[in-house]
Design a protein around this nucleic acid. Structure first.
Lengths: 141, 141
DNA sequence: TATATACCCGACTAAAATAGTCAAGTTTTA
DNA sequence: TAAAACTTGACTATTTTAGTCGGGTATATA
């Protein structure tokens, strides 16, 4: 069970943005250099972040991206959601078709995965982008 | 982010075992039929469960597998561990080699994944195989 | 004591998912 | 007007996952 790189990079890139975009937009080029992520890959990621209004773009020379909200208003959960990475431990709909009547062993494990989903999602619902930055400050001292 | 089938099948099979193995060993053939999992795949899974002393095997005619402990003493966490499926959201050791000094953006996200790991693992640490069975009884009524 | 039943184990493969690139744009502003 | 920067869809190599194959070994019972 592993998170994919897109989700990870998205969080990294947004943390970077939160740190550097207070005045001017930050170009993907800069993020790419600092975080060591390919620009082309960042483009894919930011496209989705933009569609979900987590960032907005500024075109033209000296353009780039800016956070669309305050870091304390950006839940980690919504970043994942933007990347179609809602934490779903299993897609059991296929199984339900056959034989899944609520009494089978299959179903009791389904129940477990549902609880897990809720557990994980609540973790991300309660985490904000700003939480990460605060941690960093404490640590840097 | 998805759990793999081995972990899921392992939990299903063990729940099946808990239900049917109180007197006699249960053959993989029976589990295979009831849970609709290939015997060959079950063999792989039970090999690991056995190595980790979660089940023991009874060879020969009418043989099969039996739980090695009471269901209330089997943590879901140890089932996952047996299958090398410790919940690890990312393998960041590669990244640490370059540039990860505790101050970079990379590191603050690492911190987030660590917290997530702890969060998920504690969920499985506190869940027992017996918890699933209790649920099933309630539901069947 | 033969044999059917059942476990044991390493190697293999097809299919799916993931990570990342390419090409060919459009928009904006200095 | 040209450079900087975003936009988009299609593509591909690599890795992971799921599941199979083949050829065993052990043992209980008829």
């Amino acid at each position: 069970m592993k998170l994919n790189t897109k989700s990870r990079y998205a969080v990294m890139a947004l943390a970077d943005l939160a740190k550097f975009s207070s005045q001017n937009p930050v170009s993907l080029r800069d993020i790419s250099l600092r975080q060591n992520i390919s620009i082309l890959y960042l483009e894919q990621i930011f496209l989705k972040l933009k569609k979900n209004f987590i960032v907005r773009s500024v075109r033209g020379v000296n353009g780039g991206y800016v956070l669309n909200k305050n870091p304390q208003d950006i839940k980690i959960a919504e970043i994942f959601l933007a990347l179609d990475e809602k934490v779903k431990t299993m897609a059991c709909k296929k199984d339900i078709k056959k034989s899944c009547t609520g009494k089978s062993v299959k179903c009791i494990t389904h129940n477990l995965w549902d609880e897990l989903d809720i557990h994980i999602n609540s973790f991300f619902e309660n985490k904000k982008l700003s939480d990460l930055l605060i941690k960093q400050q404490n640590r840097a001292q």
